[in-house]
């Protein structure tokens, strides 16, 4: 058990100072702006909750929210099983695993605004490897005007970008399982599925829960990548929450942008809170199981 020591707060001072300056102060400011109609920062008029009423009663907001949720749902249901599957393969691969891990990390180091450019080049019908292949096969692929095709590009691109992270986290979780567990399972004649279900899954559950949260939030608020592919089109079919906010900022509608920011931040807080509560419950359940 860790000793109780409130002096430990001193160790947190540098981190909290930076987070306070770069995070808390701007949050307070954005909360303040959201109640004003702002033409320039010197001429702002108090309008109370007007922006909130406008956003929360607009169909556009709920449509974007729905699209963002759907995108996250698709992305998670592809990337989580794929990442865990790759990690399970790696577990059995000995020295090759180092190379595969390096390969998995590569998409993470590509600047976010270049990923859409890479994918658009790839599906270009004139000199793109995939575009030319599809054209040869006689498959008409039109990401500009066919909403389903735009979605396919976005999901494929996001999967390319982030599955590596899920796999790395899952593999980190699997590495913490002592070999004795596997030996015991082998002696008991456990099947491959039973080993996964009763040994591997419980051991990686915590870290996968974290991976789930990270992937959910990052895909839920996808911005640059989605904007670059088709600017929310065709016909707003890929206009996600962040794209609405980006539009408000770029249109210099600061009050409205601030209200969007506050609403989105409240969503973030709710999700983080739900996550922590769920973690607490899991933690308590497992410590009771030990006791």
């Amino acid at each position: 058990m860790k000793p109780q020591n409130n002096g430990a707060w001193l160790y947190l001072v540098p981190a909290l100072a930076i987070l306070g300056f770069a995070g808390v102060v701007p949050l307070v400011a954005v909360f303040n702006y959201s109640f004003f109609d702002i033409f320039t920062l010197d001429s702002a008029f108090w309008i109370g909750g007007e922006w909130y009423r406008e956003i929360l009663s607009s169909e556009r907001f709920y449509a974007s929210l729905g699209r963002s949720l759907l995108f996250s749902l698709i992305v998670l249901s592809v990337q989580m099983p794929l990442g865990v599957g790759i990690a399970l393969l790696l577990r059995r691969s000995g020295r090759v695993s180092v190379f595969v891990l390096m390969l998995l990390a590569v998409p993470l180091v590509v600047p976010w605004n270049m990923i859409p450019t890479m994918w658009l080049s790839l599906i270009n019908t004139e000199n793109g490897l995939l575009g030319m292949a599809l054209a040869k096969l006689g498959i008409g692929f039109d990401y500009k005007f066919n909403a389903v095709h735009t979605w396919i590009v976005l999901v494929a691109m996001d999967t390319w970008h982030w599955t590596g992270l899920v796999a790395v986290l899952a593999y980190a979780g699997l590495s913490g399982i002592p070999p004795a567990y596997y030996r015991a399972a082998a002696i008991d004649g456990a099947s491959r599925y039973q080993v996964f279900r009763y040994i591997e899954l419980p051991k990686i559950a915590d870290v996968m829960f974290m991976a789930l949260l990270l992937r959910f939030m990052d895909s839920f608020m996808i911005y640059i990548e989605a904007f670059r592919i088709n600017a929310g089109g065709p016909d707003n079919a890929t206009t996600f929450l962040s794209l609405d906010l980006g539009e408000a900022i770029n249109g210099f509608s600061y009050g409205s942008a601030a209200a969007h920011s506050v609403i989105y931040f409240l969503m973030v807080l709710t999700i983080a809170w739900a996550f922590r509560t769920a973690m607490d419950r899991r933690g308590r359940a497992s410590s009771e199981a030990i006791a």
């Binding site: 987070l19 770069a22 995070g23 102060v25 701007p26 949050l27 400011a29 954005v30 702006y33 949260l213 990270l214 939030m217 990052d218 608020m221 911005y223 962040s242 906010l245 980006g246 900022i249 600061y254 942008a257 601030a258 920011s261 989105y264 931040f265 973030v268 807080l269 999700i271 983080a272 996550f275 922590r276």
Partner: peptide, 16 residues
Amino acid sequence: LLAFRITPPVVLSLPV
């Protein structure tokens, strides 16, 4: 810490 990690940059870009 969790909340700051998952806050999308675009939410804070204007006041920052």
